[in-house]
Write a protein that binds this DNA or RNA. Structure first.
Length: 836
RNA sequence: GGGAGUAUGGCGGAACUGGUAGACGCGCCGGAUUCAAAAUCCGGUCACUUCGGUGGUGUGGGUUCGAUUCCCUCUACUCCUACCA
């Protein structure tokens, strides 16, 4: 045995043994309890970053721990392989995006292998592979036939120079990121999935997800945005048309002083003819999307108030009325809605307060610049007067329904999921447009609808529509000519079901219900908070949709969710405001200088990003210090859900710890003590083990790390004092290997091998230790709540016996001198407090 | 504008349902070893102190025998969302 620990050799060795023995390859086994650990799969961007290292280390701790607790652990990995960066790379390289993607997968896989993750690589998948995406084409067809997928006109960001549709993230300050051209909104026919059908279920079932962070549930709930109110119908004076509005405040109907409709409300078309000023106004509104100024156009039409005989309300077209929400029409009650009030002040409209604060005695309660939106008492509202808001809502809705002017109505912010992308590197939407005008799903036997193999990838290749001949096809039923849909799926489509596919990636059908029944739901899903809404909501929707399509009976895909914090690092800038790499910064006399001696200023600690030059490449770290060191650092100090600050000293100290562990083996080999026993130390170590167990179970890995440090410190001290017998020491070291295994698996195996040689450490059982009840306990003795002394006393004494011991304490005697004891408070095993 | 969260030594962070504040790690200081350094090991490390103590968990208050923990006030920072009627 060489005295210096060589991580390069050792880590490779165990990685080879694990994969050779297929230690992490699992099979469905109904006699064994399963546990499904999943980390959000990576986009193959080229190489792994620290965020991946953190994410996969956290997951690996859980996976290894659960395996050692006897679970049949499914822990798979794959690639979220469609997406725009591949197209951009393809443009530069003039090669097919697949080349770049598969090449990156190869590199990143080798990096992940170096981390020593307990993954079942036999289940690896890449979403860009036809054997993967053909199944989601099938899902789409099922959804299409079930009415869950449909086509409608929708606005997209259109880059007039690149002649392409841009994602929202690709529009920067209203301009295309690539061309710099001003982006136009263009109406295109787009495919949508009817996620809105599940609004209520998606909201309700959040309650059942008790192993999800509240934060994520709240974000989803806000996104779904359920609101309860009423639709109210207004007759237009001297016109046979009507306007229906949605409101959550029907109780303020008597305060309505105007109606406002959105720019593309159906009434606008009628008004538009021969009206140039209106046309101009509408055009302006389109360009004022992000404008907070309230603008309106008075239509000249007036509506009749449903409850006030003869009252006329002007109708405006207003820029602040959203077309996609509710009915694209509102009634304005300026007194109790800030937006309405701003608008009313601008256009000199009446402001009639109909709610006043409960305790207000002001009979002339008026509203100036600030709308009153709190609870209160209804005024100026005939039959509603005197009611509170809640009751008034009930009464007015009942009245509306009686009179036929409106109904109770529930609205959601959640809109249907637009899945069309006018791109190349995505899954083709399996629809054909036949020459007779029929829109049909591709026949299932014809799946997959594959992406074209093209030799040279250029600007015009970035959309399937531009690829010569690809879209031409024939309807296999009728022989009629047809063209394919040239849009591809949003890449969230792929990630919405990959966790099902892992159950069996070789299966010819999308999935097997029996597999799903066994493996799903995912017991622990781990990933970044940035996916709190979209990915997680889409996946939940997919699960419910597939359930309704008869694939299985599962309601929710992810039983437990954990969102980890970011990896951050110090940033530096020079006097020109340019970012400087931290590793090139030198610190002298409290000042920072770069390589050339120019002064550098330390900036904020921020998320690692290329643009700020504060990234640390995991590859460098792993080759220099080893995977165990990197993993240990990722788990030390910071709680997993908080941001982790990368520091050079931190990684070095982790490295030192790994080497210190190795020194223990040497100490063991040279250890020669017989027939002595240190049961006290062993009891402490057992306690430590149980703490580690508890802290893994509760995702407090930083605390587990602290307890392992304590374990090693206690053990080192005992070795030094030669208190343990050699057998006891072996037991302690074996236990140490076991608790280290989820965290730093390579050195854990290596130590295990050196001291025992029997089997693999990862195959050992992780047990809960039985700790003897302590005979002596410590209690704090306080005077007026301030601790004056700490005494060690025997377990289970009476109050009188305790007082007797306390009376012997000098410190307490001194503290009680010349004082009168009013009260004595004794909490067994904790404190004794004198109140004087 | 709306919502959520956070605040503890020089730093990252501990403290069970209110019961010894600062576990553990980093850094720093002192010592051992060394020709010297690195590495390693040992000891110390909240502040003030007349060495008896006193003060101390962002601010100010409250409840309590006792508050980092519960309640109210204010401040700072972070994140999400955004004209959702």
């Amino acid at each position: 045995m060489s005295s210096r620990y060589n991580h390069k050799i050792v880590e490779k060795k165990w990685q080879k043994i694990w994969s050779g023995k297929k230690v992490f390859n699992v099979k469905k086994n109904k006699d064994k309890k399963k546990y499904y650990v999943l980390e959000m799969f990576p986009y193959p961007s080229g190489k792994i970053h620290m965020g991946h290292v953190r994410n996969y280390t956290l997951g690996d701790v859980v996976a290894r721990y659960k395996k050692m607790r006897g679970f049949n652990v499914l822990h798979p990995m794959g690639w979220d392989a469609f997406g725009l960066p591949a197209e951009n790379a393809a443009l530069t390289e003039k090669k097919h995006p697949g080349n770049w993607t598969y090449q990156n997968i190869k590199i990143m896989k080798s990096q992940l292998l170096q981390m020593g993750l307990s993954l079942d690589w036999d289940r690896e998948l890449a979403t860009c592979h036809p054997e993967y995406y053909k199944h989601e084409q099938k899902f789409f067809i099922d959804m299409f036939k079930a009415g869950l997928a449909y086509k409608k006109e929708a606005e997209v960001n259109w880059d007039p120079v690149d002649k392409t549709v841009l994602a929202n993230e690709q529009v920067i300050d209203g301009k295309g990121w690539r061309s710099g051209a001003v982006v136009e909104t263009k109406k295109l026919s787009q495919w949508f999935l009817k996620i809105s059908k599940y609004s209520d279920e998606l909201l309700k079932d959040l309650d059942s997800l008790n192993q999800w962070p509240n934060k994520v549930k709240l974000m989803q709930s806000n996104w779904i945005g359920k609101s309860i109110g009423a639709n109210i119908e207004f007759k237009i004076f001297k016109n046979d048309k009507k306007i229906t509005v949605f409101t959550t405040r029907p109780d303020t109907i008597f305060g309505a002083t105007f109606l406002a409709i959105s720019c593309d409300h159906e009434l606008v078309d009628m008004l538009l003819t021969k009206n140039e000023t209106l046309k101009k106004f509408i055009e302006e509104c389109k360009n004022l999307n992000s404008d907070k100024v309230k603008r309106g156009y008075e239509t000249g039409l007036v509506a009749e108030h449903p409850f006030i005989e003869g009252k006329k309300i002007p109708i405006f077209i207003a820029n602040f009325v959203l077309k996609e929400y509710g009915l694209g029409a509102i009634f304005g009650c300026p007194a109790h809605d800030q937006r309405d009030l701003d608008f009313a002040n601008e256009y000199k409209l009446d402001v009639i307060p109909v709610v006043k604060p409960k305790d207000s005695t002001d009979n002339n309660f008026t509203i100036q610049r600030k709308a009153y939106t709190e609870d209160g008492v209804i005024i100026n509202s005939e039959f509603l007067n005197g009611l509170n808001i809640e009751d008034a809502k009930k009464v007015i809705i009942k009245k509306l329904e009686e009179k036929g002017f409106g109904t109770k109505k529930v609205n959601y912010k959640l809109r249907d999921w637009g899945i069309s992308r006018q791109r190349f590197w995505g899954c083709p939407i399996p629809i054909i447009y036949r020459e007779d005008g029929e829109i049909l799903a591709e026949e299932e036997v014809n799946l997959p609808v594959k992406l074209p193999e093209i030799e040279e990838f250029n600007e015009s290749s970035t959309a399937l529509a531009n690829i010569n001949g690809w879209k031409d096809t024939v309807c296999s039923k009728t022989g009629l000519k047809a063209v394919r849909e040239t849009d591809t799926f949003d890449t969230f489509f792929e990630s919405s079901w990959y966790y099902f596919r892992y159950c069996n990636t070789k299966l010819d059908t999308p999935l097997d219900e029996d597999d799903i029944n066994y493996w799903l739901p995912v017991d622990q899903y781990i990933g970044g908070i940035e996916h709190a809404i979209l990915h997680l909501l889409y996946s939940r929707f997919f699960t419910k949709a597939l359930r309704d399509l008869g694939y299985f009976k599962l309601n929710e895909p992810f039983k437990g969710l954990f969102t980890q914090g970011m990896v951050t690092h110090q940033t530096y800038k020079n006097s020109n405001g340019e970012w400087i790499e931290p590793k090139s910064v030198l610190s002298t006399d409290g000042k920072f200088k770069d390589k050339d001696g120019l002064e550098v200023f330390s900036g904020k600690i921020e998320k690692m990003s290329k643009s700020k030059k504060n990234v640390v490449d995991p590859n460098d770290i792993i080759s220099l210090y080893g995977a165990d060191t990197a993993r240990w650092f990722m788990l030390s100090d910071s709680p997993p859900d908080r941001d982790l600050q990368w520091t050079e000293t931190g990684i070095v100290s982790s490295y030192k710890f790994i080497n210190k562990l190795w020194d223990l083996v040497e100490k063991y080999e040279n250890y020669s003590v017989k027939k002595i026993s240190d049961t006290q130390t062993i009891e402490i170590l057992k306690e430590n083990i149980n703490f580690v167990t508890e802290y893994i179970e509760t995702f407090q890995f930083n605390k587990a790390v602290a307890k392992i440090y304590e374990y090693v410190n206690t053990l080192s001290l005992s070795i030094q004092q030669k208190g343990l017998s050699k057998d006891e020491l072996m037991w302690c070291l074996k236990k140490l290997c076991i608790i280290l295994q989820p965290f730093v698996p390579h050195i854990s195996e290596e130590i295990w091998f050196n001291i025992s040689g029997e089997g693999l450490c990862i195959n050992q059982k992780w047990t809960i230790e039985v700790v003897e009840k302590k005979k002596k306990i410590k209690i704090a003795v306080q005077i007026n709540g301030k601790t004056k002394d700490v005494l060690e006393i025997a377990q289970g004494l009476t109050k009188e016996q305790v007082i007797e011991i306390i009376n012997k304490s000098d410190k307490i005697k001194r503290g009680l001198e010349n004082k009168k004891i009013i009260r004595e408070i004794y909490v067994e095993g904790k404190i004794f407090n004198f109140v004087v």
